[in-house]
């Protein structure tokens, strides 16, 4: 399982043919309590860098950009009722959407865990 990170604090984790996208623990901490998540639609095609979702805290709204191009194959519906899952566990229960990637090699341009740790240091 490979996890990669963007400079905008999204993570993307390859899981077989699909990739799970969410925001990093660092990002959720910066945003504070998440109160609302605007999810993409299943079947929606996104290009790398497109705005795919929005997470809102009380005082801020942040766009979530697609870390890679692909098709949305699943969204985390639980976030509609429990947006706080992103705060509790951003990398597991707080995932946002899943992509079927057009080209898995796009991930190579993103940061690995060490590089991301240095980015947020």
């Amino acid at each position: 399982m490979t996890t990669r990170y963007t400079v905008d604090h999204e993570y993307i984790r390859l899981d077989g043919a699909e990739a799970v996208v969410g925001i990093t623990p660092y990002a959720q901490e910066q945003l504070g309590d998440i109160v609302y998540v605007e999810l993409p639609s299943v079947g929606q095609a996104v290009k790398k860098g497109d705005e795919a979702a929005v997470v809102e805290s009380v005082k801020a709204a942040s766009e979530i950009y697609a870390p890679a191009s692909g098709t949305v194959v699943a969204v985390n519906d639980r976030l509609s009722g429990e947006p706080g899952l992103i705060n509790l566990d951003p990398e597991a229960g707080g995932w946002i959407f899943k992509l079927r990637l057009d080209d898995a090699s796009e991930l190579e341009a993103l940061m690995d865990a060490d590089a991301y740790a240095a980015h947020t240091a």
Partner: peptide, 8 residues
């Protein structure tokens, strides 16, 4: 006041 609760 708890603004998180109001918004969630």
């Amino acid at each position: 006041l708890d603004e998180t609760r109001a918004a969630r």
